[in-house]
Amino acid sequence: MKLEFALEMRISLGERMHIKVAEDYTRGAVLIRSGTFSGPGLSGQIVPMSGGDFPMVRADGGGRFESQYLLRTDDGAVILKRSTGLRHAPPDVVARLLAGEPVDPRSYYMRMTPRFEAPEGPYDWLNRSIFVGAGRRNPTGSVFRFWKVV
């Protein structure tokens, strides 16, 4: 197997909300304010308020997350992007991430498997491929890089 770079997303996030679900984890919720994406053969904007990120953070610093939102290509195609992933870090790093502080991306693990639903035509390859990704958080948003498994 090989990996081929597919795209990068730069996302601006809205207010972060945290729901203390049980003693051992907290559910986060944050809507997408705006963003852009680009890669070989596609680029565009993330549709504002079309979805968000919903992480589940355990007390030990580990957790998983789900996200869903819409992408609009520069030529007007709309693509649904869904993703699941894992993030783990030492508890002090998680606390800084949850507080919206800058954190060195090498201090935590953030990997995901996105799925795309694209219309027929030039973006159909997104429907027929498996992708893996890596992410990093910053105080106002996230950056995700995705690779196609070939």
Rank of each mutant, 00 (worst) to 15 (best):
G61Q: 04
P55R: 08
I46M: 05
A77W: 05
G51P: 01
A89R: 02
V78S: 04
F116N: 00
T36R: 15
M49Y: 15
I130A: 09
G100L: 09
R33W: 13
P119M: 03
A134I: 15
P105L: 05
G100Y: 12
L97N: 01
L98Q: 10
G85C: 02
N138P: 07
G41E: 02
D124Q: 09
E8R: 14
E120N: 07
R128V: 02
P91T: 07
E15Q: 15
V103Y: 02
P114A: 06
Y69K: 05
I19F: 15
M112T: 11
V93N: 01
I79C: 00
R96I: 03
G52T: 07
N138M: 12
S38N: 10
F144W: 12
F131R: 04
R58S: 06
E23W: 10
G28P: 04
L70K: 00
G76K: 06
P119S: 04
L42C: 05
G28Y: 01
V103A: 00
N138R: 13
I130W: 13
A134C: 13
G141H: 04
T73H: 04
E23A: 08
V93Q: 03
T26W: 01
V78D: 02
R145A: 10
P114W: 08
P90I: 03
G14N: 09
E23K: 12
T73Y: 06
G100A: 08
V132F: 08
S67Y: 15
W147C: 03
A59M: 10
D24Y: 14
R87V: 07
R106P: 02
